[in-house]
Design a protein around this nucleic acid. Structure first.
Lengths: 192, 192
DNA sequence: GCGGTATGTTTACGATGCTCACATGAGCGT
DNA sequence: ACGCTCATGTGAGCATCGTAAACATACCGC
């Protein structure tokens, strides 16, 4: 099974092949088309429609996978943040994911959530919860919802600003430093 | 002059007509195509190419206009922020612009800056400077660059998260409140 | 074995961005 | 007033895309 070729007709594992091909294309260059995925899998241009209602459905599956990957990046080898510095590192991981896989990141976040895809909704909720838990753990005294939104937005905004070239830096390390600095700076600022 | 029709051939002001048609479409629904713009202007499908090298060029012009509009929203009837609360209001204005004209906002920020368009580059720089000036005015003691990035990213991130349905609220007012609350919360949080 | 169904194929439609060769006519110098 | 030229608009055409409908195949349970 898996991605092996079989007899000619009946690919054997088209759905998975399409997803991995799409994922690879997203990570290499930019745009993928259903037809290109079909070509890649050695299958007719409309075959993908046997597995995905339309392009959006395929993208939702990709998004769900991406969200799971993101969660791994944000948790694996890392305790739940206990200090402001830990939060900064979490933000760095978030932004680095976005910059390492920008096209995927856009698929994950760049459109309304399409409540039809259960796996996607769930994966998104897990990310949300993870970030919220981190923020409230470090700052239990502050309005939890507002702070969680702020932390997420800060990381998310930095990710987009760097992805879209609105902010620039020479290296990934430098971007990481800037993210840390931004977090530190806004936490150092005091409202009167 | 302006958008009046003339003889049939030689529209008279095609470039401007295309831009306003594109702007209107962006604000009404979603996608616009060059061909649709041409139709709208009552002109052949390839006429737009006399005025814009390609789709990106047209989008850059739209982006520049959008950035100028944003700057107006952020400055008109508003002093340069002098307090944390003022900063919150600035962020609210930023997010409200994004939610009022989301498709335009994506055109403005959703791709690398294309240094080819001088007017766009300049408009973008003005926004950047404006935000930076606001942040450093209110918090002169903190690392200016880092803080400016943080403030921008916070507003930008909230804009995207609400645009893309990752955060939700019932009304524009509620979103405004949440943005204010997020700003207040993160400024209230203290690093250790 | 047999048949139903999941999976692929073919063909087709309408749309898009863009190129290139051609048509028009507005504005200029004479 | 005349004629040129060049900016502007036209037309036909290409490659691509997403998607639908009708048809073909062969896997799997009986």
């Amino acid at each position: 099974m898996s991605t092996s070729e079989k007899s000619g007709y009946h690919h054997g594992d088209l759905r998975a092949s399409l997803l991995t091909a799409a994922m690879r294309m997203l990570e290499e260059g930019e745009p993928f088309s259903l037809r290109a995925l079909a070509r890649e899998a050695g299958v007719s241009p409309t075959a993908p429609y046997r597995h995905f209602k339309d392009r959006d459905a395929l993208e939702s599956a990709l998004a769900a996978q991406g969200l799971r990957d993101l969660k791994v990046d944000l948790t694996e080898g890392r305790e739940l943040p206990a200090s402001a510095a830990d939060l900064g590192e979490l933000a760095v991981a978030y932004v680095e994911f976005a910059l390492r896989r920008p096209a995927l990141f856009r698929v994950m976040f760049g459109n309304a959530c399409d409540t039809g895809s259960a796996e996607r909704v769930e994966a998104a909720a897990e990310i949300h919860d993870l970030l919220a838990a981190a923020m409230t753990r470090v700052f239990p005294d502050v309005d939890a919802d507002a702070l969680a939104s702020a932390g997420w937005a800060l990381a998310h905004g930095m990710a987009y600003l760097y992805m879209d070239g609105k902010l620039q830096a020479d290296s990934t390390e430098e971007i990481g430093d800037r993210v840390r600095a931004a977090f530190a700076a806004i936490l150092a600022a005091r409202a009167d």
